[in-house]
């Protein structure tokens, strides 16, 4: 299968701040590719480079066989871009926004109606309403419809689920799956690790560097350490104690409990239990758990 996006050694700095460090990755056509990382990791910068809104300092990026710098005009007609912030005209109606973008891409709403039908039909009853008066979920559907109206081969979405309620999030991912089935390559960035499993492949990004690229399953399988979930009455004391444990590799608070990996390849759980008890922790519970993407991310970060 041909590659839809081919990024080679892309670097970008804003003054002294390095946003992207020598990034290389390729996205197969027709897959949902997730760019996953915390705020400030460089996700938006990378997407803006792919959307031809930013010029990379170094390296090159090819979208649907067109270079984003040299052939930016061709890239613009074959790529759909949905920025993180709602950026359609709030003082124009749904219908007017759709017409505007369709026309600017040299097409009409009628001509490509079938492409956006699933999404657009949900907001069509309100088409005379101004975009500024829509709910968050409806705004998102409109933005998605507008970025799809010119039949793009690749769809770039910058944090589409940030600040969106769980129901709308779920809906969005279903829409993305449908688009994938229609043959659209979806490149989506998100700070939510739990959304990783919804992607075909993911890239973990941190401080402008890619930590790993693979399918979510392989990334989880590549987790080569035994992961323990530890709990006790005083979590703050527990965290301090376990971090000062001589064999501690990593320990991060994860919601209710604390996720721990050991430096040794084989070790005794009772030994750790004993250590924690001796430090004065009460109600200590230790269990072996299966790692999630977030654990892999943390593990890779520690590896750095």
């Amino acid at each position: 299968m041909a590659n839809s996006i081919e990024i080679k050694n892309v670097s970008k700095s804003y003054g002294n701040t390095v946003a992207l460090k020598d990034i290389s990755l390729s996205v197969n056509s027709g897959e949902i590719f997730g760019l996953i990382g915390p705020d400030g990791a460089g996700k938006t910068t990378l997407i803006r480079i792919l959307a031809t809104l930013l010029l990379p300092d170094k390296g090159s990026a090819v979208m649907t066989n067109y270079d984003v710098v040299k052939d930016y005009k061709k890239v613009r007609s074959s790529v759909g871009y949905m920025p993180g912030k709602f950026s359609l005209y709030q003082d124009l109606t749904i219908e007017e926004n759709m017409q505007l973008y369709a026309t600017m891409f040299g097409t009409t709403v009628e001509e490509n109606y079938h492409l956006v039908k699933d999404i657009y039909s949900q907001i069509e009853p309100f088409k005379k309403r101004r975009a500024g008066k829509l709910s968050g979920g409806m705004k998102q559907k409109l933005a998605l419809s507008c970025s799809l109206i010119h039949k793009p081969e690749v769809l770039l979405l910058d944090e589409p689920t940030t600040g969106v309620d769980p129901v709308s999030r779920k809906e969005l991912w279903e829409m993305l799956k449908k688009l994938k089935n229609d043959g659209v390559t979806v490149f989506v960035s998100t700070p939510y690790m739990d959304e990783a499993s919804l992607c075909d492949r993911i890239a973990l990004i941190q401080a402008g560097e890619i930590l790993g690229i693979d399918t979510p399953e392989s990334i989880v399988n590549s987790f080569d350490k035994t992961l323990l979930s530890i709990n006790s009455s005083d979590k703050y004391k527990l965290l301090n104690d376990i971090r000062s444990y001589e064999h501690c590799n990593s320990a991060f608070p994860f919601g209710e409990s604390l996720h721990y990996t050991d430096k040794r390849t084989s070790f005794d759980i009772p030994q750790i239990y004993e250590y924690l008890r001796n430090c004065g922790n009460t109600n200590v519970e230790i269990a072996v758990i299966k790692p999630a993407i977030e654990d892999c991310f943390m593990n890779l970060m520690v590896g750095e």
């Binding site: 809104l53 920025p83 950026s87 600017m104």
Partner: peptide, 13 residues
């Protein structure tokens, strides 16, 4: 300011 220029700039206009 409201960011609409972003979406305008990615069009082939």
């Amino acid at each position: 300011e409201i960011g609409t220029i972003e979406q305008l700039n990615v069009t082939p206009i």
